[in-house]
Amino acid sequence: MQFEGLIFDLDGTLADTMPAHYLAWREITQKHGLKFSEERFYSLGGVPTSRIFSILADEQGVSLDPGACAIEKEETFISYLSEVEPIQPVLDVVRENYDNVPMAVATGAMHWVMERILNQLDIHHYFTAFVSSEDTVRHKPFPDVFLEAARRLGVPAEKCCVYEDAQLGIEAGQAAGMHVVDVRDFHTPRRITAGA
């Protein structure tokens, strides 16, 4: 099938950011007295940072400001950004389709963090539409982020293909009626706590 629009998740799909994100999560959750295993971190891929802080705080009976903690965590993540590399097989797809098929980034990340990652990897120019956590009320596994990306590309949802690495994102792409490529089939991020 010839797709008329390609939509890419960012963290763990375009950029191998997940290890760096987990290092930042571990630092800030420990500081605030929260437990957050690497397994749980991956299971919540695609959920906005402030929402994860709310979930963890509610579960563990900790009082905190999710919005302030989210900013603290993202600022910590930025300090690890120099270690982040693109995920080459996905970047190859982007380069092959550049100038032929309109492409978007659709992420649960905050807009400013998305911009920093795309610019760090020098891949911002490949995309014509961007949707971040601030752009929709509902987030993955709801399809809103991908539907908004398709709308901004001017392409019907059913003619779009989504590249995703997280289960919630895959469910969101399927709920949007899009074809979904599971990046986990050819890329496994390095685990920080493997064998620890």
Rank of each mutant, 00 (worst) to 15 (best):
V47R: 10
T193S: 12
T17Q: 11
I123E: 07
A176E: 06
Q174K: 15
E4Y: 10
E158R: 14
F8V: 01
E59A: 08
D11L: 14
A172Y: 03
L6P: 00
R26G: 00
P141R: 11
G173D: 08
T193G: 00
M114N: 08
F186D: 04
G154H: 12
W25P: 00
T193K: 06
H21R: 09
K140Q: 05
L147M: 14
P19E: 10
R151V: 00
A194Y: 12
I192H: 02
S54K: 15
K31V: 03
P89T: 08
G61T: 05
L14P: 02
F142K: 06
G33F: 13
E164M: 11
L6N: 02
S43H: 07
V94N: 07
A106M: 09
K73H: 05
T76F: 00
I87Y: 05
H124C: 09
F142A: 15
L91M: 12
R40K: 15
V183M: 09
E115R: 15
M103L: 10
L168E: 01
H111T: 06
M103C: 08
Q60P: 02
S37A: 13
E4G: 07
H187D: 03
A175E: 09
A149E: 07
C69W: 02
A106S: 14
V155F: 10
V155M: 07
P19Y: 12
A175C: 04
P156A: 08
I7L: 13
P189N: 09
Y163V: 01
G173P: 02
V62D: 06
Y98L: 06
C160I: 08
A196W: 12
G5T: 08
P89N: 11
G12I: 10
R95V: 03
R191I: 00
A20D: 04
V101F: 10
D122M: 09
A172V: 02
R190V: 12
F8Q: 02
I55V: 13
F8P: 00
L147E: 14
V183H: 04
T128D: 07
R26W: 03
Q30I: 01
R116S: 13
L168D: 01
I117Y: 04
I123H: 07
E38A: 11
S50T: 00
G5L: 13
G173Y: 09
F127E: 10
E148D: 04
I192W: 04
V105Y: 09
E39Q: 14
H21E: 05
E85S: 12
C161E: 13
S50Q: 15
E85K: 15
M178N: 05
V84M: 07
V183F: 11
L81D: 01
F186K: 07
V105F: 11
V137C: 01
L64V: 01
V183Y: 05
L10H: 07
V62L: 10
G45L: 14
A166D: 04
A172K: 02
A176M: 10
A157G: 01
Q174C: 06
Y42W: 14
V94Y: 11
L23E: 05
P156R: 04
L91S: 04
A68S: 13
I170R: 11
L168Q: 08
I170L: 06
K31G: 01
F41T: 02
C161V: 15
F130C: 11
D135W: 08
V84L: 08
